[in-house]
Each structure stands twice: as C-alpha cells, then as structure tokens.
C-alpha cells in the first residue's frame, strides 16, 4: 500500500516570536526549524501501518523553500522511504495554495492513505488536510485520536466537544492526526545515516493565485503586571474577595 504524508517545516515551539522587517512574517533569524509536531504523529502512524499491517511505501511531501529538505530528511530518518520537495520561493503560501500544490502532486499517485498533522504549529490554520481531500474528491477525517485499519476500510475516532465521534471511512482517504494517536519515535542513528542516501525528488510547486493576504504579524499586547496577593493559606480569603469584587469572575 502506498501512503503519503504531507508535512510542514515550522519554527521550534520554544521559539520566541519576532516579527520580520516586512511586518508580515516571522523573523527567521536564529530560528530552529523542526518537523511540525502534529506531522510527526502523521509520519509515525504511516510507518506503524507499513511495518505492522500493510507493507509498501511511505512517501513524505512538503511545500517550501530550499530549507525544507532538512525537515524531509527528519521524516526519512524516522523511516519514510522517499521524499518529494515541491519547491517555491513564496514565503508563507496560504492554505489553499499549499493544498492545490499537494493535490496536483497526489492526483494519480495511487495513495490509499494520505496523512496530515491536524494543524501546523506555526499558522495554526488546520485547513490543508481537508482542502486537499476536497480537491481530490477523497473522504477525510480530521483530528484523529484513534485509528484502526481493516482491509479497505478504517475506523477513526475524532475528539469533539465532550466526547469522541467514531467515523467509518472507505479508502482511499485523507486523515489528519491529533496528539495522543501515537508516540512518535526518535530517529535512530542508523535511521539518520540511512536517510542521507534516500532520494528527495524536486519539483516546482504550483500554488496558483493567493486566497488570503497577510496584512500584518504583530506581537500580542502584554498583559498588565499581575500582583501576588499573598503567601499560603492566609492569601485565600483575599484572593476570593478580589475574584468576586474586583475581577467579578466568581
């Protein structure tokens, strides 16, 4: 079975965000780039299925500039078989542009399962997975926290408010992954060495016209300096009075 995992390179979640001189994007200076954490879960799930249930190929695909190849190598080091880099010089293409480029690459690729993280850990849009599915006419289940494959079908659990929805889906299908689905592996030294010899195919990304325009990226207004109302048990009565009379929240 062919599985494709669509991944994104993002700034490390420890990053302190600084705004670039254009006022619209992240200042890339000093940023450590990683495979988006939800995408790691997607890669892990595809590898688990390949190794335990449905042998075949796991292909990772990413849209971005030249730097993206280090992130594709991370996924190859985890165990993916090969990678495709859809190249673009556009900084921060919008979700529909990325979805178009991915859909064009995936059309006719024969993937039975197409995996995505539920959202990227930078723009948090959570759009690309269901958009690619829509463009390809595939069924899609988002925010998968449980996944069981049974022949040409899968049963997926997705977290919703106050419970879990159980969805049955017929393959080929697109799935976006939520934390808790699995524990992504760390790449082994052997995996890192092997990744250096695995192929990364380069192609131009066909983004099409933008559907969104970033007007500004700003830092959130700082919260007013808080106050320590006191120490230990004695502070509790003061706290409760402030919450009731000043903040009016209880």
């Amino acid at each position: 079975m062919i599985q494709v995992v669509c991944v994104k390179q993002v700034a490390d979640t420890e990053t302190r965000v600084r705004v670039a001189a254009d006022g619209r994007n992240l200042d890339p200076a000093g940023v450590t780039w990683i495979l988006s954490p939800y995408d790691e879960i997607a890669v892990e799930q595809a590898l688990l299925i390949r190794d335990k249930q449905a042998p075949g190929e796991v292909v990772v695909v990413s849209v971005g500039g030249p730097g993206v190849q280090s992130t594709l190598r991370n996924a190859l080091a985890m165990g993916a078989d090969r990678a495709i880099h859809l190249k673009t010089e556009t900084i921060g293409p919008d979700p529909l542009q990325v979805a178009r480029a991915l859909a064009e690459e995936l059309r006719g690729a024969g993937a039975e399962l197409v995996w995505f993280g539920k959202q990227a850990a930078d723009d948090d849009q959570a759009q690309v997975g269901p958009m690619v599915a829509e463009l390809l006419g595939l069924p899609c289940v988002t925010m998968a926290a449980g996944f069981a494959l049974d022949g040409g079908k899968a049963t997926v659990e997705r977290e919703i408010e106050g419970g879990r929805e159980v969805v049955e889906v017929t393959l080929p299908a697109a799935i976006t992954t939520e934390k808790g689905l699995n524990d992504p592996r760390y790449a082994s030294l052997k995996g890192i060495m092997a990744a250096k010899r695995k192929p990364i195919e380069e192609k131009p990304a066909r983004l099409g016209e933008p559907a969104l325009e970033v007007v500004a990226l700003e830092l959130p207004p700082p919260r007013g300096a808080g106050k320590v109302v006191g120490q230990g048990v004695e502070a509790v009565s003061v706290l409760v009075r402030l919450l009731r009379e000043e903040a009016k929240v209880i």
Partner: peptide, 30 residues
C-alpha cells in the same frame, strides 16, 4: 480564502479583515 479560529473581525472600507492568533498565541496575524 478562509481564516480559522479568529478572535476579531473588522470591516474597513467595506473589506473584511480577520485577526487570529498564530504560534498558539505568541503572535497575532491580520
């Protein structure tokens, strides 16, 4: 185009602008 998880919307000159947290709230995108 779609802007998800917005925390403010504005209509300036008949045009919609969406404000949304990015980087889980470490920055705000318009």
């Amino acid at each position: 185009g779609l802007a998800t998880d917005c925390t403010a919307l504005a209509a300036d000159g008949g045009r919609l602008t969406a404000t949304r947290p990015v980087f889980a709230g470490k920055a705000i995108q318009k």
